[in-house]
Simulated scan of single mutants.
Amino acid sequence: MTDYIQTLKHPVVRRLSIIQFLSYFGTWFSQVAIFSMLVGYGADEITIALTAAMSMLPAVVLAPIIGIIVDKVDFKRLMMTLLFVEITMTLGFILIDSLSYVWILMLLIFIRSAAASMLFSAEMTLFPKILQGKMLQRTNEIHSVIWSICYASGMAIGGIATHYMGYDAAFIFDALLYGLAVLLLLGLTLDLEKEEHTDSNWKMFKNGFIYLKNSPKLLHLILLHASIGLTSFDALVTLLADFKYKEIIAVALAIGWLNATRAIALLLGSVLFSKIISQNNLQYFLIAQGVAIITWSQLQANFYISLIAIFIVGLFTTTIWAYTYLMIQENTDKAYLGRVISYNDMFFMVSNVLTAMFIGYAAKWGMSLESITSVLGIGFIFAALYYLWLKKHFIYH
């Protein structure tokens, strides 16, 4: 715990952590409202899956552009612009009052998520430039912990607020939190050596692609990190709430409590395992994640037992995410960080999108939610085998 306190004493890390907290909390707060709204308007499985995928798609299709912008544009100016975009798009959700406008909802989500992806890439590119070693690892873990806290509290409070106050109140509250983040950003002071990128955008794109192509170890680490996309459970949790739990508890509350329970575990797992995980034992964490998901699949019939099971699922995810991200940062030349981070987010989000679409279409075609969940768990067993191969050929080679 002392390491985390020391890391948070860094003025840039501390201020950006608070900004992250405000941004993430608001996002997850309104996420419950979005999916509850879809269920309330009678959306089918494919619409729910497409909406979940739309929040991940920008990092896939815009990755090369995001990387170039992050490497070229001043960090603070870029962050300010992105936060204003997120405010505008979030307020736009209020305009949606039926399924006939779902395409507008998806467009708004796409634009807001594009801004969020760029903001995330900018932060994760900045940190290795000002931090290194254990402090960088702790900063990644703090980022994960903040995400987990916001996921838990945002989903839980968002579910209650949406149930009692309605969708619009959640969207307005979200926009206000982004506004507070803007005010905090105004006071951020950065002392960075200005990097001059004289190459054209096309040349930067090409050089970044060539650098990644010529770095096989880095490519494999990116693919390994992408396996965590198998924990993209938004569509699955929404379908569980709609198909299995709505007779027991309101859909918004079910979504909120399932996600909040998992997120509490994400936070606890990071505290428990961050000092234990290493490149020597990462495969065991991947196996544990897979076994936990498979176990959850067999316990989904009962809402309250499912809460316990999804808690166990959440214990390993944040630790795996933070450590594999650190491995990517440490193996990337600083001149290419923005582009590599964006490509990494692209692969990660492809995994998230494919997972969301698999859940939606598999459910539509009649596959049980238990079987769908088991398939996701088995994916982590294969990820562990892939990492063992990676260790043999690139890490200890």
Rank of each mutant, 00 (worst) to 15 (best):
E195H: 11
L230R: 05
Y211I: 04
M54Q: 04
A265Y: 05
E195V: 15
I5R: 15
T90C: 03
L183A: 12
G338M: 02
T317L: 09
L315F: 03
D199C: 05
L337R: 14
L38K: 00
I96Y: 03
I157F: 14
V313R: 01
H197L: 13
F285R: 10
F380M: 10
K364D: 12
I48Q: 03
D191R: 15
F29H: 04
W296C: 13
N281K: 10
S342T: 09
L286K: 01
S121L: 07
L223M: 14
T125I: 11
L224F: 08
F382E: 06
A383N: 07
A260M: 05
H393P: 03
F243V: 09
A309M: 07
S232D: 10
L131E: 03
Y151S: 14
W147H: 14
L239H: 09
L180P: 00
V251A: 01
H197T: 04
I310W: 03
A250D: 08
N281S: 07
M349W: 10
D242G: 06
H143Y: 15
L8E: 02
K244V: 02
L22H: 01
T90S: 11
I341S: 13
I287W: 15
A49M: 11
A181K: 01
I328E: 06
A226W: 12
C150Q: 05
K129N: 13
N207K: 09
L180N: 00
L286I: 08
T198S: 15
I248M: 12
L192P: 14
Y41R: 10
R339N: 10
Y323M: 06
L16N: 06
H220G: 13
T355M: 08
K72I: 09
H393A: 07
L337A: 04
Y325F: 11
I294H: 11
V353N: 05
H10R: 12
